[in-house]
């Protein structure tokens, strides 16, 4: 749950009172073209950018946990994992070492063998390349590794920032389909920031459209999102 968040870098204000909510078990898409504040919002949730105002909190078992004053490490330990924009793998470590680092948080270490087996089952290519350096893999494989690494922390909430960037169209649909599959398998709650509207709406339950740092439209289902005027304006060029 994010309410009225304001944030920016230096003198530049990027987010102007953004509010959105993700309920347990949902897949919510945060849609917008480049430079509208999607990534900034994701970074605020993860504690990587300090918001200038507003509230970000997690409601769990009737208790409210404030995220705005927590460090990234503390937020991760609450069971929130991010697949970051640009993947942010450790290029000089092997695939397996990257995955094992994903299980760093204390609560994930017990299930490490099971999670590793799941990841290799979900992404057979990672098993085949487990000894290879992450930096030497193709973009699609790296994106798969980034997702698998995030899942190694046994998260309840998965944030995905621009999974389609830099990938060939065929790989984009494969990655998106994989996120849906994993979401169902792990009963995750997913918030996905994406500019590829068609792909994102394939798996989202509902979504928000962000324009110039403001939520301009909230679609209660994918049909509402698809038939929205903004979408026609920004994505379909009508």
């Amino acid at each position: 749950m994010v309410r009225a968040v304001e944030a920016g870098y230096g003198a530049v204000r990027v987010l102007h009172g953004v509010s959105l909510e993700v309920r347990e078990g949902e897949t919510v898409a945060l849609l917008g073209t480049n430079g509208n504040g999607k990534s900034t919002l994701i970074k605020c949730i993860m504690g990587m950018v300090a918001p200038a105002g507003g509230e970000i909190f997690l409601e769990r078992e009737g208790r409210r946990v404030d995220l705005t004053r927590k460090s990234t490490e503390e937020i991760v330990s609450l069971g929130i994992a991010l697949v970051p924009e640009g993947r942010r793998l450790f290029p000089k470590l092997s695939v397996e070492e990257n995955l094992l680092l994903g299980a760093y948080r204390a609560q994930a270490r017990a299930g490490i063998a099971r999670n590793l087996a799941f990841c290799f089952e979900a992404f057979p290519v990672l098993r085949a390349r487990r000894r290879q350096l992450a930096g030497s893999m193709s973009g699609g494989e790296q994106q798969m590794l980034a997702i698998a690494r995030a899942l190694m922390s046994s998260p309840q909430i998965l944030l995905v920032d621009e999974p389609s960037v830099g990938l060939a169209p065929i790989l984009v649909s494969r990655v998106i389909a994989k996120i849906k599959e994993l979401k169902e398998q792990y009963q995750l709650t997913v918030l996905m920031a994406e500019q590829n509207f068609n792909q994102a709406t394939k798996i989202a339950d509902r979504g928000y459209i962000i324009v110039h740092g403001k939520i301009e439209f909230e679609g209660r289902d994918t049909r509402e999102l698809r038939e929205n005027e903004l979408v026609k304006k920004y994505y379909l060029g009508v």
Binding site: V76, R88, K92, L93, E97, L100, L101, A108
Partner: peptide, 21 residues
């Protein structure tokens, strides 16, 4: 875990934070 984190830390500190370290 500490050893692997030490190997990773100079490659991407921000990403290491995302691992919870």
């Amino acid at each position: 875990f500490y050893g692997r984190a030490i190997m990773a830390v100079s490659q991407d500190q921000g990403a290491l934070r995302l691992m919870g370290a």
